[in-house]
Amino acid sequence: MAGYLTTHILDTARGVPAEGIKIALYRVSGNSHRMIAEAVTNKDGRTDGPILPEGKFKTGSYELIFFCGDYLRKTGQVEGETLFLDSIPIRFGMDAEDHYHVPLLLSPFGYSTYRGS
């Protein structure tokens, strides 16, 4: 099986998928970051396809950045210019040709993630 990466965002404070959040994927090598993909979540809180599809998959270190600030403001969960959570980076490694799923469970003042299936 060829490897690929998917993600989704759930708004745990409201109990709904988080639509309209920009996500950037970076390949990390030491202190170097190179953006390799961008996507925006759909009404199901998912990207329309894998953020890293089979044809572009390589093992290594990666970072997903979830740009949640505008979403949290738009949904009325936070106000102001400086937010507790605005851009959320998650760094992780993929060491085998496999399906990796890295979701974000989001609230205005906390988040969690895990390796999903």
Rank of each mutant, 00 (worst) to 15 (best):
A24G: 07
Y111M: 08
A24V: 08
I51S: 13
R14K: 14
K22V: 07
L105T: 13
T75S: 11
I21A: 08
E63S: 12
P17S: 14
D48K: 12
G93I: 00
V28H: 13
I51A: 12
V16T: 15
G116L: 05
T59F: 08
D44K: 13
G93E: 14
T113D: 00
G30Q: 02
S61K: 15
H101G: 11
I36V: 15
R27L: 01
Y62E: 04
I36D: 04
F66A: 11
L72A: 03
I23M: 04
T113I: 05
G80M: 02
A37H: 10
G110T: 11
T82I: 07
A96G: 04
F92N: 08
Y114N: 08
V78L: 00
T41F: 08
I9S: 11
S29Q: 09
Y100N: 01
A13T: 07
T59R: 15
F57Q: 12
R91P: 05
G49S: 14
D86E: 08
G20S: 10
R46S: 13
D11R: 08
S61A: 11
H99F: 00
D44G: 15
F109N: 13
T113M: 01
H99Y: 02
C68D: 10
H8Q: 04
E19W: 03
C68I: 14
R46T: 13
D11P: 07
K22W: 06
V16I: 14
F67Q: 14
S107A: 15
S107C: 08
A13P: 07
Y114V: 08
F66V: 13
A13M: 01
D86L: 00
F109K: 13
D70H: 05
G49C: 06
G110P: 02
L64F: 15
T7P: 04
E81W: 00
H33N: 13
A18S: 06
V78T: 14
G55N: 15
S112P: 11
Y26M: 05
E54M: 07
T6W: 01
T6E: 07
N42H: 06
D44Q: 12
G60A: 03
G116M: 05
G76N: 08
Y114M: 12
H101F: 03
D11G: 04
F57K: 14
V28C: 14
E19Q: 15
G3F: 02
L5V: 05
D95V: 00
T12F: 01
K43E: 11
K43A: 12
R73S: 03
P108F: 02
M35L: 12
F92D: 05
P50V: 02
D98P: 01
F84M: 11
L104T: 09
P50A: 15
E79Q: 09
V78N: 10
R27P: 05
T75E: 11
G76M: 01
V102G: 06
Y26S: 09
P17L: 02
G76P: 12
I65W: 15
E81G: 00
I88Y: 05
G20Y: 06
Y26F: 15
D98H: 10
L105A: 14
D70P: 12
G93R: 15
V28K: 15
P108W: 03
G55S: 11
R115G: 03
T6Y: 01
F66N: 14
Y26G: 12
S112H: 10
Y71A: 09
Y71W: 07
R27S: 08
E63D: 07
R27Q: 11
C68H: 09
V40G: 08
Y26C: 09
L25R: 09
G55L: 04
R91I: 03
P103Y: 10
